[in-house]
Simulated assay, not measured.
Amino acid sequence: MLVSESALRTFTENIFLAMGCSKEHALLAADVLLLSDLRGIDSHGVARLTGYVRLWQKQRINPTPNIGIVHETPTTATIDGDAGLGLVVAPFAMQVAIKKAEQYGSGWVSIRNSNHFGIAGYHALMAVQKDMIGFAMTNASPLVAPTFSNERMLGTNPMCYAFPTGKYPPVVVDMATSAAANGKLEIAQRSGKQVPEGWIQDAEGNYTTDPHALKSGGSLLPLGSDREHGSHKGFGLSATVDILSAVLSGANYGPWVPPFVSFLEPPADPVGTGIGHFLGAMRVDGFRPVNEFKDHLDNWVSRFKSASAINPDQKVIIPGEPEYEAEIDRRKNGIPLVDAVVEDLNELAQRLNVSPLRPLKGKF
């Protein structure tokens, strides 16, 4: 089903309002989710709304948080999110990082006591709008086994780096440090499809293509899938995200991270508070004039786009380019949602007394 951006935005805002969020927070949370759907990252958009509501109903999300700085230096800060929506806590933290960068050249913020923050790209792109380089990462539900293990110890732990350009779209490297994001498994489950081999393993550590395997003790694999294909590197990247996001801030880390997924419950022996994020902003003009940097990054993009292709029909793709193209298309033509997601959302709307989603007029 195709839905217009405006209709989906209003629907999402109304769900957050029904949770008790302020108008300001509802608008912001909806904006984060909508950017994900617009950019074609369907696994982290409105498909996640049911998860936020479930955690709110379990009193694990505070709809009216008192977000604040608990430790600070001129260029760094630690923020406590007061169990608020990560969709709200992370933009607050990035604003702090940007303000510090404006004054001192760079700003770095570690966050504790937060929740799932949507796509990392949203927060990193906030810095790009100020001609800065943006960094965003978060730890997540323990679903990933480290190399040589079948025990779920880490999250998909995404990291994002975003760079401002001149004539091209921003270069945005936004990726999970696991072989695949859990949201892609959820989309496969709702679509009734298998997943590629190398994404997940069963409880015994054998490859499986069953997207439901996590519910029976299986685990996601690190980026690289196995040692021979570099999974130790994915494990190392994921560990870096976990340490910066949580060990540094006082959030839960490793297997103690409170899960977003419905089939896991929070550990009874937490080592911190909530989940953690790590955000940063760095002024380009702290290194060279902004226009010079943009000109050369444009040249970088142009040269890589013209790299000799093995297959003429498969050109080199610049990080962030597919998402930018998806955003242009979906703003114009509507956002596609799979039937199972629409059914979940409309059931949610009925429970919260919110008007249901309607298809884009004339397009079914």
Rank of each mutant, 00 (worst) to 15 (best):
A176D: 02
H71I: 00
I79S: 03
L87K: 05
D82H: 12
G81C: 06
A127N: 02
T165E: 00
A101G: 11
A140P: 00
G81Y: 08
T73S: 15
F92I: 10
D174L: 09
R112V: 02
P169R: 07
N182C: 07
V171I: 15
T64Y: 00
E72S: 14
M94Q: 14
R60W: 07
G84M: 08
G107E: 05
M159D: 00
I69K: 10
P196M: 10
Q189V: 14
G155M: 10
A93E: 08
G121H: 07
A188K: 11
V96H: 04
P142E: 09
A93H: 04
A162N: 09
L185Q: 07
Q95T: 13
S191G: 11
V171N: 02
T73N: 03
T73R: 06
N62P: 04
G121F: 06
G134Y: 04
A136K: 04
A136E: 03
K99T: 13
D80N: 15
Q189N: 07
A127P: 03
K100M: 08
I119V: 15
D82Q: 06
M153P: 00
M132L: 06
N139H: 10
M94D: 05
S178E: 05
V70P: 02
E151T: 15
R190D: 13
T73I: 03
A127Y: 02
Y122M: 03
N62D: 13
S110L: 01
